[in-house]
Simulated scan of single mutants.
Amino acid sequence: MADVVNSNLLDLDGDVAQLTRQLCDIESVSGNETAVADAVEHALRGIGASGGTELEILRDGDTIVARTRLGKPERVVIAGHLDTVPLADNLPTWLDGDGDEQLIYGRGTADMKAGVAMQLSVAAALRNPQRDISWVFYDHEEVNAELNGLRRVTENHPDWLAGDFAVLGEPTKAGIEGGCNGTLRAEVTTRGRRAHSARAWMGVNAIHAAGHILSRLEAYQPQAKNVDGLDFQESLSAVAISGGVAGNVIPDECVVTVNYRFAPSMSASEAAEHLGTLFEGFELRVTDSAEGARPGLDRPAAAEFVAAIGGIPEAKVGWTDVARFSALGVPAVNFGPGDPLLAHKDDEHVPVAQIYQARDALLNWLEG
């Protein structure tokens, strides 16, 4: 394992792969983001003094916003979260491989400190941005949504997140994943009548009745819906089932929990109505929901972003914080180095070449 790179003095003008390691080696499991937030703020404050585009620095807890004030006709928001899931004996970071095949291993490399390093490196390198930019670095993304730093800033300082288009640096293997599906969880309940299992005919078995719910789920044909030029694949699945009183009792209640991932052309309330129709005749209670996000690829800034990055944009089937920007009327895409399938894994890693690729593409777009 290589030597520790950890330093609270981030070098924004150096190698972006080394910057990724510096960021990762400042441990920042959700709730412990202050050290890395302090390091990011200190580094951002030095950009203007070093000849870069001067930034106004704002802070709410461990969320930092650094924005230009150039009077440009458009403003883009580029955001990334500073926290990680808990460690798995995978810090400090280490390198594996050589040349174009070199990988950085360690917690946060893919999700998403390589994306944060991309942001910081580009912010320091910019000399003549064609748009005003708001750089956002936020806390508590990996835990309960009530704690999310973007949510807090949305409530306390919504103007900090204002813009015409947003980029969230979540891992996408340096490709574009537009918007995101919405998500809804609901409990579908059957009712029966209790009885002794030796005289089962005296009762009504609620678990048996749940078979009708499962049959409807099995017969359901998920749809792909085109939104702003991207095909969002929906899905509807049973994710839990509970019922039963004792080994000798016919149960009078059974609950099937379903998860519905719906395209951003549909609101959460419309998704709930859809499930109400599908499960007509059963009790249905929505327990959690989050709106999706349109990618807004028809916006000029988005079209230029796609042209600069290259490749064919894909729809984000999972939920990400781009939905928070969408709720503010700011269309958003996901773009960053790293494979989302490696997020939270013990062997989390990111290709060094992908960090360079994403960093250079973002810089080229912002400089026009």
Rank of each mutant, 00 (worst) to 15 (best):
D339Q: 00
A162Q: 06
N6W: 14
A174N: 12
A332T: 00
G329I: 02
P92G: 13
P129E: 14
L275Q: 12
M266G: 05
Q119T: 09
S215W: 08
A219I: 11
A17K: 03
D360K: 04
I57S: 08
G292Y: 01
R191I: 10
A323H: 04
D321G: 04
S237R: 07
R107P: 05
T34P: 04
P158E: 09
E141G: 04
V204K: 05
A88H: 13
K225W: 12
T277R: 15
E41F: 06
A290Q: 11
V40S: 03
I104L: 13
L217G: 02
E41W: 04
V258K: 01
K173H: 15
W201H: 14
S289E: 10
M202E: 15
V256A: 05
A174H: 11
A88L: 15
D62V: 08
R151C: 12
N205Y: 03
A39C: 13
Y220K: 01
I47L: 10
H274L: 09
K113R: 13
I250F: 00
L147R: 12
L362S: 08
R194M: 14
N148S: 12
I26R: 00
W365Y: 11
A125I: 00
R294F: 05
E304T: 07
A43D: 05
F232H: 05
A37F: 01
K316A: 15
S121E: 05
V76W: 05
E253Q: 04
A2Y: 05
S215G: 15
M118Y: 00
A219V: 01
S242A: 05
S215Y: 09
P129S: 10
L19C: 14
A17H: 00
V286K: 09
V16I: 15
L19K: 03
L230D: 06
K72Q: 15
G310N: 06
E187H: 14
I312H: 00
N144K: 03
A302Y: 03
A224Y: 09
P222T: 07
L70S: 06
D89S: 12
T20H: 10
G149V: 03
I64M: 12
G192N: 00
D3Y: 07
Q354A: 13
L70V: 07
I78P: 03
R285H: 14
V40M: 02
P351K: 07
D60T: 14
E33K: 04
A263F: 00
E146P: 00
Q119R: 04
V122D: 07
I47Q: 14
A224S: 14
A39Q: 04
L103Q: 08
D339G: 08
G292R: 02
D159S: 15
L363V: 07
T172W: 10
E291G: 08
A315V: 03
G247Y: 04
G48N: 06
D100N: 12
I26D: 09
P171V: 11
M266I: 05
L284S: 09
L236E: 01
G179R: 06
P158K: 03
G292S: 07
E253S: 03
A162F: 09
A240G: 08
F232Q: 02
A246F: 01
A353I: 07
H344L: 07
N205G: 05
N334R: 00
S237N: 14
A125P: 00
V317P: 01
L341S: 15
